[in-house]
């Protein structure tokens, strides 16, 4: 059974049609990267998936059932700063675990683990107002991983990070995905990032957004960005996105 099934998803804002009859499936444990032109509606798609937006028509199923945020374990890393200014880094990381009623022991262990993962253990007692943009995004990433989600949605999460940290977290994400087999839907406008991490790539068109092409990324892991096969794959995606 498909982990995520999207059928005929259509979403408009007033007269502007953003998503136009989008259908696809994401298998259990898959890593799908969605790429497309800027402003094509990638974020709208993820927001619709977690029911932050009401859709005009179509359905989104997880394991054959309509999305239920209390039942399905989903974590969403947003593009915007989403850390809460009144909570410390530690409390921010624990936010989702507390809502999901994790045991105190597990919350403590998991907090240490994810803070170490994103290199923020020294800043556990800092408030978001004392951190840089990239640190804030690392906190959001840690908070999402802490709840051990079955489905992880990531909306350009590394867009604001410096290159070194970006490469580190890309490798870290691949490692976690291989270990946990969490289903990941990762939105990015960075084609190299999509080719580097994904098992499948979906290319969207400009508004009204449709699925232009959806294909497997057969390159073996770990990938090397300088290899010929990698460059070929990157060029293929680039040519699909080009509309000029």
């Amino acid at each position: 059974m498909s982990k995520v099934e999207v059928n005929h998803l259509t979403k408009s804002f007033g007269k502007l049609k953003v998503l136009d009859d989008i259908s696809f499936q994401v298998e259990d444990g898959d890593f799908l990267c969605i790429v497309g032109p800027t402003g094509c509606g990638k974020t709208t798609f993820l927001n619709s998936l977690v029911k932050l937006y009401d859709v005009d028509c179509g359905e989104i199923l997880i394991n054959g059932e309509a999305v239920d945020l209390n039942k399905h374990s989903i974590a969403y890393i947003m593009q915007e700063y989403s850390t809460m200014s009144w909570l410390t880094v530690r409390e921010n990381v624990q936010f989702g675990m507390k809502i999901r009623k994790f045991s105190k022991k597990k919350i403590k262990e998991k907090t240490q683990e994810v803070l170490r993962m994103v290199g923020m253990e020294k800043f556990a007692d800092y408030y978001p107002g004392q951190l840089s943009a990239s640190m804030l995004q690392r906190v959001s990433i840690a908070r999402a991983f802490a709840v051990e989600p079955d489905l992880l949605l990531m909306d350009e999460p590394y867009g604001q990070l410096d290159l070194e940290l970006r490469f580190k977290l890309e490798d870290e994400l691949i490692r976690i995905w291989q270990e946990t087999k969490t289903t990941i839907i990762f939105i990015t406008h960075n084609i190299e990032e999509a080719v580097y991490m994904s098992r499948r790539i979906m290319v969207l068109t400009n508004k009204p957004t449709k699925v232009k092409e959806d294909f497997e990324n057969p390159l073996p892991l770990p990938r090397n960005v300088t290899e010929e096969s990698f460059v070929e794959m990157r060029n293929r995606v680039t040519n699909l996105i080009k509309w000029w």
Partner: peptide, 8 residues
């Protein structure tokens, strides 16, 4: 939204 996606 963050709270809602965690199921609050």
């Amino acid at each position: 939204w963050v709270a809602r996606t965690f199921g609050a």
